[in-house]
Nucleic acid binder design. Sequence first.
DNA 1: TTAACAAATGAATATATGTTCATATGTTGG
DNA 2: CCAACATATGAACATATATTCATTTGTTAA
Lengths: 112, 112
Amino acid sequence: MSGNCCSKCGKISQLKTKMPDEAQLYELSDLFKMFGESSRLKILAAIFEKELCVHEITTTVAMTQSAVSHQLRVLKQARLIKSRRDGKMILYSLSDDHVKVIFNMGLLHINE
Amino acid sequence: MSGNCCSKCGKISQLKTKMPDEAQLYELSDLFKMFGESSRLKILAAIFEKELCVHEITTTVAMTQSAVSHQLRVLKQARLIKSRRDGKMILYSLSDDHVKVIFNMGLLHINE
DNA sequence: TTAACAAATGAATATATGTTCATATGTTGG
DNA sequence: CCAACATATGAACATATATTCATTTGTTAA
């Protein structure tokens, strides 16, 4: 029961990270907040494998274009995603692998 | 930039987990939601090292006893923490190491 | 330049949820 | 049993934020 949660997690749970100060805790909760809304999580999952334009994301996650756009802005401000223009379209993709790491950690947890 | 986010994360970002279905995504966002509120995150951080009674948590996180109790209930329902009675007091601790893993993953991200 | 398409934005609204306040429940020692 | 302490709980309230609706901005092709 103690020790590592599973073989895939290695020694991560035992990392001796300094307990974060007040400011860091807010930063941290803001980060997790991004993953804590199903609509945002769906969007992140949609662009997990490859970049997609807003329209593709909209149909994938079954939300209105406006709602998607608003959430994309939030995710971008949090630096979890990035975008580039290609003609009329704007393509969105994950900023870096941290998103995948955190996402997969959550998956491992609920699938234990 | 691609590949692993950092040495500590190993191959986690490359895990070939099946894209979660609708139900799993809700489960996942509910999980992250627990970490996405600073008051809850403070409580989790407070009992990171050792179990604490409600009163100790209350003074550590600087919240009212009632607010702490309400959040403890939420965290317990999410199975992130467990409790045991010792006399008048009830001691709370983390359910398992998943909490630490996810917490530390977030820390690694914001400290990159 | 204009029409058609793609995406973003601001304001209003709806909803979810964290906190407070008052009170109830549970435990121990005298 | 009663007083003091520890924690939990329900309802009301406050606040944060996701979504909608209408509109605007930006791009391309004719």
